[in-house]
Amino acid sequence: MGERKPITAETVAAVARENAGHPLEPERAAAYAAALEPILGMMEQLRALPLKDVEPAPVFTPVEGASND
């Protein structure tokens, strides 16, 4: 996996506006970029774990007994 570049206010603003549908004021985008950087660092710790054959904890349970009545 390539090295991650620090996230910028412009990226945060673009994701919020174009992906999430929650546009942000520039000041918020800048503040969130600063707050997000250590969080993204923590996510790198997760990506480095030995998870190759490990399934996620929540598993799907088919819903029984549903009807259209």
Partner: peptide, 26 residues
């Protein structure tokens, strides 16, 4: 509000890595 809006930036794969970690830790 800040926590909630920062959540818009989280990648699905990292959420699922976290859920896989729960299996590993458990």
């Amino acid at each position: 509000r800040a926590f909630l809006e920062i959540g818009d930036q989280m990648l699905a794969k990292d959420y699922l890595h976290a859920q896989r970690y729960r299996t590993l830790l458990g």
